[in-house]
Design a protein around this nucleic acid. Sequence first.
DNA 1: AATGAATGAGAGTTCATTCAT
DNA 2: AATGAATGAACTCTCATTCAT
Lengths: 199, 199, 199, 199
Amino acid sequence: MGKAERRQDLLRAARDVFATKGFHDAKIDDIVAAASVAKGTFYLYFQDKRSIFSELVDGLFARIGGAILHVDLGSDIEAQVKHNIRAIVAVLLDEPKLTRILLSYAPGLDPEFGAKIQSFYAGVKMLLKESLTEGQELGIVAPGDASVYATFTLGAMKEILFENVSGAAARPREQIVLELFNLLQRGYLRVDGERHSPG
Amino acid sequence: MGKAERRQDLLRAARDVFATKGFHDAKIDDIVAAASVAKGTFYLYFQDKRSIFSELVDGLFARIGGAILHVDLGSDIEAQVKHNIRAIVAVLLDEPKLTRILLSYAPGLDPEFGAKIQSFYAGVKMLLKESLTEGQELGIVAPGDASVYATFTLGAMKEILFENVSGAAARPREQIVLELFNLLQRGYLRVDGERHSPG
Amino acid sequence: MGKAERRQDLLRAARDVFATKGFHDAKIDDIVAAASVAKGTFYLYFQDKRSIFSELVDGLFARIGGAILHVDLGSDIEAQVKHNIRAIVAVLLDEPKLTRILLSYAPGLDPEFGAKIQSFYAGVKMLLKESLTEGQELGIVAPGDASVYATFTLGAMKEILFENVSGAAARPREQIVLELFNLLQRGYLRVDGERHSPG
Amino acid sequence: MGKAERRQDLLRAARDVFATKGFHDAKIDDIVAAASVAKGTFYLYFQDKRSIFSELVDGLFARIGGAILHVDLGSDIEAQVKHNIRAIVAVLLDEPKLTRILLSYAPGLDPEFGAKIQSFYAGVKMLLKESLTEGQELGIVAPGDASVYATFTLGAMKEILFENVSGAAARPREQIVLELFNLLQRGYLRVDGERHSPG
DNA sequence: AATGAATGAGAGTTCATTCAT
DNA sequence: AATGAATGAACTCTCATTCAT
């Protein structure tokens, strides 16, 4: 058995156990049992419980980062925005268990880990905010507080994806992409179009 | 010292400790120290660590439920929607520590708790969804999947409120209310160049 | 059961177990079993295994330090030197188990602990050396390297005391005192008195 | 690579590691790393960790035993005694690391090992005692308890040699030899003011 | 003969919970 | 009602030793 496969076995096992039980309730015993190795073997491949968890989260972070393309303003913007949404949705829904961990590991619950994940989301928001500010200059994003827009977008996306990976709902990916795009573009409330026209 | 006050002391202490350290890192020792009682006293008022945590979360749930008013279609809808948003925001930001706990305790982390919180959010979504479906019939909500709208709304609200209670941002309540209303009503993307040209 | 007694029970138990098994082979389980308490109780009284060991050694150090009197040169020096030897011997043989630990815990075996004990012996040697240097000025100690004399004295005393506490020999205390005094004063080799007269 | 050399490599490596870290803190990993062999190889040459340690100690024992010459009473006794002291000092200081291990491994620390080392020292003392008893009959050793003299001699020698191998002091070998001889012959205390007045 | 991945018993330590006072 | 000392199950991590290759 190659070292790399063993490592993968353990990562897979840890992913499943973390997704099911959460970090604290996942015991090393659970992970090694799921990987069918002895306890000591775990420590040949990972320094400790925290480090295997970090590695899982980092892996997902990296894939998300790789999936996002910079928007080229010369081409069809709607298509590109949808592409980015679609790419992120694809990465996350291809790894539902990891995603579940990521979305579950809310900052604040456990300061130790929270810091790491919080910084990830902060990074995502920063990226979003910069894109949105740029979009405002080009007239494709409404004037207003870009950081608020970023926050809303992230929250909406997290919530709908969590429903998919948690089993609460199983929406087609394309529906998620389109609905999210529509929210960003048009909202859904249609109250009193006459008195409160935009502009 | 009345029993009720002791209980309140403990709840307050637990709230502070949980908000600061998270559930797992909060020790009974921390809570009783914060409440200035002996360790054994804790168990006179609460069955165990989990139950005091539950009680804190339940209390906040109840307050949120009480804050939401049913929308009366005969009156100014925009005002009523804003009122409801404002009420929820007020309840949560008046109890930032509890809110932090609530928003941090993501479902999925700990299956047992997760179920409880997930059911709460499911309840909120259901309420929202029913309102939105009703709104669709009356033309004040765009056609489409009302449960998706509910999910987005909840996610966006959770995210922006978490920023406030976690210290990441300290936005005025009214800004939060208005921005959220605007998102729901108009979104922010303006990729359809004809209707919303810049300038 | 008073806290102080519990603490004493544990110290006594640890002393016995350390004396019998040595530091590494002494398990917390052994100590708590000897003290008839639960494992967790140990940690109510001592931070960890190392700290109870340190406390035992420190206690003995303190008693030895308290037993030594400064030599008054105006009075009978021989009596005073014997008194000091007698005092040290008494302290150590009154606590044979602790003494065994102290004498067994040779520096170098375990760098972590060795440092502490080594520094103790260094302190003792320094004290001895200073006394000896003073004695040289007053003509009651032969000229020569006082630090070597200090080393010899310490080594001889450690060795003979170790025999007593380890059960290898059970000499009367007063014999130990007198023999040691004689060694320091006259040695025991009587080779060729004519060619190598002192002075 | 011959078997014998491999064995030597491992012994040398173990000697260095034990001397630096002590028995308990020396890991098999440290030893095989120092010997540049794989972990499994260790067990082809030695049964276990304890046995390589024993072998090191035994080797030193043997060399010391070989260095001591029986005193011939017809020749210059002082020279022969000095020769024996010198021989032992030479053996030990030629192998400072092994000596450090030997002197560090105080009996009593680990009952199993303790017995072995204690029996070695007992053997040395017995030898010394016999020589001293013989010396008493010939008038070259003062009357008194020969076993006490043996103990003192061993203790003084161990202590001064330990200072050399532990780095606490680095005295010339000949000084050690002479000082030790002087201690045995004359002691250093001069409390009997008449015969040895200063100046 | 050599390797080094795998093993698993075992250790110290933590902490929610109990209960005699 | 209040206390806080005592409990002991449970957990993470270590490392000497084994054994298939």
